[in-house]
């Protein structure tokens, strides 16, 4: 039997953790539905309004175009990075290619490069090519961060798939590419989906690249937050409304992959 004191202490701790985790998020959601005058008070007794959402989507904030930029940049990044990464991950997982260890280390070590180092040359290059403030520029730099990570993650998932059915199919005369397409990819699908969502979240939240490479046309949601800092001061209720727009899609995705996420995260790092 466990001591009642310990039992209570454990429950209390769990409640405390939940409060620490949820409070900042809840406060932002509440503020998003407050009228400006209520946003500057701590009162919970306010008349909820949707006005802030209407305001952020209209002139001069135009959150709509930022939402579109974020969606396009994150989606295209995922669509390019994940298939390339999945093929590379398969190769790393199944073949003993010459210099494989070195190549894998090379790819992983790019994860340890600070983003500022990458963005400097890209800024100069895009300026030359007149690509500053375009979505293409953002997609290209985001690939730098995301691709190595996704290779590493998908490799963890493919490593966990037994090779028996692949070998059986090859003995029956199926080509390697067929095996990849018809056997491995379907089996790795949950892992690939998890990695895709993870990759989407990383790109969606990316701030440094977008801050430097966009001015007006290609601004994404996280950078858009900064624009609510005006000469009149910080417009908290609008910032919160924009914050809700950033977090809701991501929270839904994150909760969707929560279980796999824990596993995918640990597989690569610990083993």
């Amino acid at each position: 039997m466990r001591k009642p004191f310990l039992y209570l202490a454990e429950r209390a701790l769990l409640v405390l953790i939940s409060v620490v985790v949820l409070f900042p998020i809840a406060w932002m959601f509440l503020t998003a539905f407050k009228q400006p005058r209520d946003a500057y008070s701590l009162s919970l007794n306010f008349e909820p309004t949707l006005q802030n959402f209407v305001t952020v989507f209209s002139d001069p904030w135009n959150l709509g175009s930022m939402v579109l930029n974020s969606v396009v940049v994150a989606t295209v990044t995922v669509v390019i990075a994940v298939p390339c990464a999945a093929l590379a991950a398969y190769s790393f997982s199944r073949f003993r290619v010459k210099g494989r260890k070195f190549l894998f280390f090379l790819i992983l070590s790019t994860q340890f490069i600070p983003a500022v180092v990458i963005v400097l040359p890209f800024f100069l290059m895009f300026r030359q090519l007149d690509l500053l403030d375009t979505r293409i520029a953002l997609i290209i730099v985001n690939l730098a961060i995301v691709t190595p990570f996704v290779i590493w993650m998908i490799k963890g998932f493919i490593d966990a798939i037994p090779t028996d059915s692949e070998e059986a199919a090859m003995i029956d005369g199926a080509s390697r590419l067929r095996v990849i397409k018809d056997i491995v990819m379907p089996m790795a699908a949950p892992g690939i989906l998890t990695s895709s969502i993870f990759c989407f979240i990383l790109t969606w939240n990316e701030f440094l690249f977008a801050l430097i490479l966009s001015r007006r046309d290609a601004v994404t949601l996280p950078v858009g937050l900064v624009s609510f800092r005006t000469e009149r001061g910080d417009l908290w209720e609008l910032m919160s409304a924009a914050g809700v727009m950033i977090t809701v899609p991501i929270f839904i995705m994150a909760l969707f992959i929560q279980k796999h996420f824990t596993r995918g995260m640990t597989a690569g790092a610990v083993k």
Partner: peptide, 14 residues
């Protein structure tokens, strides 16, 4: 454990 994923998914800028 489930809600613990939320801070990680939240944009650091936000």
């Amino acid at each position: 454990r489930i809600i613990l994923i939320l801070p990680f998914a939240m944009s650091p800028a936000l």
